[in-house]
Amino acid sequence: MRPLGAFVPLRHSAYSMSAKNHRVLPGFGLALGYTLVYLSLLILLPLGGMVLKASELGFGQIIDIALGERSLAAFRVTFGASLLAALINAFFGLIVAWVLVRYPFPGKRFVDALVDLPFALPTAVAGITLATLYAGNGWLGSHLEPLGIKVAYTPLGIVFALTFITLPFVVRTLQPVIEDIETEVEEAAATLGASRWQTFVKVIFPAIGPALLTGFALAFARALGEFGSVIFIAGNLPLVSEIVPLLIISKLEQYDVLGATALAVVMLAISFVLLLAINALQWWAANRHKNAEPLEVAAGKAGKEAEA
C-alpha cells in the first residue's frame, strides 16, 4: 500500500474528482484513443469478422447446431469440467497462495517459480504427460485405479487437465492481495479478542474475496476454450467425454467452416456474458468492501463477537 498523503480529503469529494480528472492528468485522450484503436484492430475486428461469417447461417441454423444432442452433451461436459476445475483451483489455489506468501519453507522460490509452468508448456505436451501419469500403468494411475478411481480417458481426466492448465490464475491473482493485507489489522482483531478462525472469516476473507472471484473467473474462462491438452486425456467418446472445442475441430475436419464458426460464436457469446457478469460482480464486491467497513472496523467486530 502506498501512502495516500495529504491529497486524501480532496479526492473523497466526488465532484472535485470528476472535475479534476480530465484537467490535471494528461494523456487521457491519447491513451484511451490508442487503447480503443488497438483493441478494435486486434480483437474486435477479427471477432466481428467471425460473427459476420457465422451470420451467413442465420439464427435458426446456429441454434440448431448448438442444440443438437451431441453439442448439448459437449456443452454440459465443457461447462461442468471447467467449473469443477475452477473450483478445485479456487480451493487449492487459495491454500497455495497463502502458503507461498505467509509461511517460510525451504525451496520456496523454486516452488513459486513453478506455478507459471502451465503457461509455458505446450498444451499438447501437458495432455500427453498427464495421460501417461494417470493411465492404468502410470505413476499415479497405478495407485488410483485399484481404488476404483479412473482418471485417464474419463470426464475426470478432462477436469484434471483443465486444473493443470488454469492453475496459475487463482494463485497469481491472490498472491499480491494477500501480500497487501497488513498484519496490523490482524493484530488489532487479535487484541480485541478474536480467534484466528474469526479473524480469517471476518477480516481476511472479505479482503481477498474479490481477487479469489477474479482468479476463479479467469480460470473458468480459460478452461472453456482449452483443447490441446484435453483431447489426449479425455477419451473423446461422443456424448460422454467430448468437449465443445473438439466439435469445432470436427466441423473443420468436414470442411464446414461455417458450422465451426457458429459453434465458436455461441461459445464466445456465453464467455462474454460470463466475463461481464464477473467483472460487474467484482466491481460490486470491491465497492461493497470499500464502502461498508474498513478492515479496522471488521477487526473490531470480530473481536466483539469473540467476547460474546
Binding site: 467471425m50 465443445v244 461459445m267 460470463l274
Partner: peptide
Amino acid sequence: TLIDLPFAVSPVVAGLI
C-alpha cells in the same frame, strides 16, 4: 471485459478468425 475476452476464445478459434 473486452480486454479479458481473448482468454476465453479457444486458441484454435483464435487462429481461425
